[in-house]
Simulated scan of single mutants.
Amino acid sequence: MEFTTERLTIRPFKSTDLQDVFAIYNDEDTCKFLLHNKWTQEDMWERFNKKLANSALTKESMLSLAVVYETKVVGDLSVWYTDMKDTVEIGYGFSNEVAGKGLATEAVSSLVNKLFSEFNVHRIQANLDARNTASQKLCERIGMRKEAHFIQNYWNKNEWTDSLVYGMLSSDL
């Protein structure tokens, strides 16, 4: 899957994207609310190769997409099917360099539209750390609704965290 928006190209990752992606995930602030710690020089190839391999969305495989602004990868979108019929979950990470420019909203919104129109998914959801207010605002900007707030339900990075579930149907667009 490859497509463009007004300012972005969204496409599968290429091996030449490694340094741009490393710059996104080698940041403590970016990874603070993610399930993984920041990338290191030692593990970046292993982690990046997983993104390279995720080039198609199927029931068995996740899709990882690079968000390219001008000539640089500034974001990472992921989509995978859940165990529920025609339901996908989305995840994303963006460089702090582009915060406040609307690029994440543009990228995630266009991905959501593609998933509903071309993949005919019934439902899209996002699960996030309740402390991640930037991600909450992004979900709300693209039309997702907060459907659940779970209290201390997820053990991550040596602490219990609250989780939020956002969801939307194509009729919410």
Rank of each mutant, 00 (worst) to 15 (best):
S110I: 02
F116H: 00
L138I: 03
S117Q: 14
F13T: 00
E140A: 06
D20M: 03
K137N: 11
M84W: 10
G100T: 08
T4M: 05
I10E: 00
Y69P: 04
S15N: 12
Y166P: 01
F48M: 11
F22A: 07
Y25L: 04
F94L: 13
S15V: 06
K50W: 13
S135K: 01
S55N: 14
R7G: 07
M1T: 14
I10D: 00
W160N: 10
T71C: 05
L169R: 00
M144G: 00
V165M: 14
Q19T: 10
N113P: 02
I24S: 00
L52P: 03
R141F: 02
S170Y: 03
E118C: 07
L57F: 06
K85A: 08
Y154H: 12
R11M: 05
L52Y: 12
K38R: 11
L169C: 01
S55R: 14
S163Y: 10
E28L: 15
I151Q: 11
I124C: 02
T9Q: 14
K32N: 10
Y92G: 06
S109I: 00
I90Q: 04
G91A: 15
T71G: 04
K101M: 13
A23H: 09
A134Y: 04
T9W: 03
Q136G: 06
L35R: 05
V165C: 13
A107G: 10
Q125K: 08
L164N: 14
F150N: 05
